[in-house]
């Protein structure tokens, strides 16, 4: 049988890879994909705990996480399309209209 700590390690590794993608890359599409990766690594954690503790709440939560991630991607890509239509920039360093 696979112990719980292996799943936790895998999910931590994927989380760190996703964080590295968000922090190191400057392409806005890659940043969005890394956010998806982070959300999915959290899902692995939730489902693993749900199985090992035999508690359904983990699976219910991961269904909600998947739904919210889909909504977030739809909105983010909508914003991206509107942004590129006004200003042809895919690099997050060039987008500074809000002085952020």
């Amino acid at each position: 049988m696979v112990p719980l700590s292996w799943y936790l390690m895998l999910s931590a590794v994927l989380f760190i890879i996703g964080t590295a993608g968000v922090l190191l890359r400057r392409n806005i599409l890659i940043i969005l994909m890394s956010i998806e990766l982070i959300l999915n690594s959290v899902n692995i954690n939730l489902v693993a705990f749900s199985y090992f503790l035999q508690d359904l709440r983990g699976q219910i939560f991961s269904v909600f996480v998947i739904t919210i991630a889909a909504a977030e991607v739809a909105i983010a890509l909508g914003i991206l399309i509107a942004l590129v239509r006004n200003k042809a920039a895919l690099n997050v360093d060039e987008i500074q209209t809000m002085k952020g």
Binding site: M1, P3, L4, S5, L8, A12, S50, F52, Q54, L56
Partner: peptide, 21 residues
């Protein structure tokens, strides 16, 4: 992350204790 996963008490679980799901 390594500290959290290795020091956690829950990480030692290897099989599901009861299987009612």
């Amino acid at each position: 992350m390594v500290l959290i996963v290795s020091k956690s008490k829950l990480a030692g679980i290897s099989v599901a204790s009861v299987t009612h799901l």
